[in-house]
Design a protein around this nucleic acid. Sequence first.
DNA 1: CATACTAGTTTGTGATACAAACTAGTATGC
DNA 2: GCATACTAGTTTGTATCACAAACTAGTATG
Lengths: 99, 99
Amino acid sequence: MTDPDRVIHEPARLRIMMILSGVDTVDFSFLVSTLGLTKGNISSHMSRLEQAGYVEVRKSFNGKIPHTDYRLTAPGHEALADYWSALDQIRGVSDGEKE
Amino acid sequence: MTDPDRVIHEPARLRIMMILSGVDTVDFSFLVSTLGLTKGNISSHMSRLEQAGYVEVRKSFNGKIPHTDYRLTAPGHEALADYWSALDQIRGVSDGEKE
DNA sequence: CATACTAGTTTGTGATACAAACTAGTATGC
DNA sequence: GCATACTAGTTTGTATCACAAACTAGTATG
């Protein structure tokens, strides 16, 4: 009866997690253009994911331009897997009895 | 890129929808004992689902005791199916490609 | 007639998703 | 050299909403 992790459950963050799970790193601009959300919105979602320990933030300079990369941590990968498990569990509620 | 229906996405309501999808009707008390949520909480979730047109409320009297039954409507069934589709789409990001 | 129970609804509050406004620095135009 | 625009984000304000506590309305029991 475990409820899905709220941090991941939020659609925007779920998308972010799914994107991150498939690649090494993504940068801020990529997320902005891919997700179609405002920068502010993405910024706060990334902060939330960072606070949860699900993503690692790496700030650097691309020449003189600041650059931010995000990477999914091991706990992040695990939490994402657990999230889908929780959802499968909900989905399979009537699995045994009827179709 | 359709986001999952927020009405259904809320874990408590998702559970309710899944329960309803498997049976004809459930009554209020059943939901209270099954979900482990307070009555107030359940009451507002059911109102939300009713407002969305996903459930139909049927009030009656069991002798002299009031009784409330809930039933999933056709749009409700459809919305639930669409919800899982939307989620499958998110889940299959790396494999389902995009449009 | 009062205490407890059934069956819910209404109310108050804290959390939060979202966009707008803001910050800080770089490149370009005049 | 000054300003205008752009890149790369963060902070702030607001409206929504999930949740539980308090309340309502009626019934059964001592």
